[in-house]
């Protein structure tokens, strides 16, 4: 156990140290989400009717959830690259704790996720977003975001261990996750969707997490959303973390 913690920290440190040296990644964490916020607010915002909220207030929790779901992408890209370059072989030949390579990766994602959440919140505040909740709820919202992002990192960890190249990780991840985030309450109220789509959007865990964020940050009626979001995150974690570690043990192709 002690080895698991220390090995995980070593791997997390490795992934964070290299971050400032890959400017393209840093750009993906900062500039890209800001660009999406601006596009949505100023291009679509005027045409989307969000009863009870200004579109900026409606959008910011949604787009942050979408963004954090994609935060784990670095994990998928990084792992498939490590696999291809033989670094996973090296790690597997070392007497280190087996889950540490993945646990360190996903832990590093928490740091980068926090970074991009802060960038988005600050951007939101500049263009008119405001919290309608107490300090406790706001901080709780940050916590929920990081938990959900962490759970999703493990989905990407599994993806990274399954695909053959970073390019494949990129397209598979994008095709799988992008629609999921869009067919939700993140960008428009689900009430505006056709019936079948609306049914899907309402049960989509993304919707539940987005709604939970709106109740935490905007004071929207919470219902079961906050607990639902926590449970969803834990379920995703409980499912994908063991699967990813199992793949890692097997992995490294042959």
């Amino acid at each position: 156990m002690r080895r698991l913690v220390s090995d995980t920290m070593v791997v997390a440190e490795r992934n964070l140290v290299r971050l400032p040296r890959s400017p393209d990644l840093l750009l993906a964490f900062t500039v890209q989400p800001v660009m999406f916020v601006l596009l949505f607010v100023y291009v679509f915002g005027g045409a989307i009717n969000t009863p009870g909220y200004s579109y900026v207030d409606f959008l910011i929790p949604g787009i942050i959830v979408q963004n954090i779901a994609f935060g784990g992408f670095v994990t998928a890209l990084g792992l498939s690259e490590d696999l291809r370059k033989g670094l996973i072989d090296r790690f597997r030949s070392l007497p280190m704790a087996r889950p540490a390579v993945l646990a360190g990766r996903t832990l590093a994602d928490v740091v980068t996720n926090l970074l991009s959440v802060c960038v988005l919140v600050v951007t939101g505040l500049i263009i008119g977003f405001s919290f309608h909740a107490g300090v406790g709820e706001v901080i709780g919202g940050f916590g929920l975001l990081l938990l959900f992002g962490y759970a999703f990192s493990w989905v990407f960890a599994l993806l990274g261990m399954l695909v053959s190249s970073p390019e494949a990780a990129n397209s598979v991840g994008f095709i799988a996750v992008f629609p999921l985030t869009f067919i939700s309450s993140a960008f428009v109220p689900t009430a505006s969707m056709p019936a079948a789509l609306r049914w899907f959007a309402d049960v989509n865990p993304f919707t539940i997490v987005v709604n939970a964020m709106r109740s935490l940050w905007l004071g929207a009626p919470a219902g079961n959303n906050v607990w639902g979001a926590v449970v969803w995150s834990l379920v995703i974690l409980a499912l994908f973390a063991p699967l990813a570690v199992w793949r890692y043990r097997k992995a490294a192709g042959h």
């Binding site: 290299r18 033989g86 072989d89 070392l94």
Partner: peptide, 21 residues
């Protein structure tokens, strides 16, 4: 396939491996 992390320096690579031992 010279399995080193290209984004880490030489010494960072070796320190990482040492700590994982």
């Amino acid at each position: 396939y010279a399995a080193v992390d290209e984004n880490l320096t030489g010494i960072e690579n070796l320190v990482m491996v040492g700590r994982l031992y």
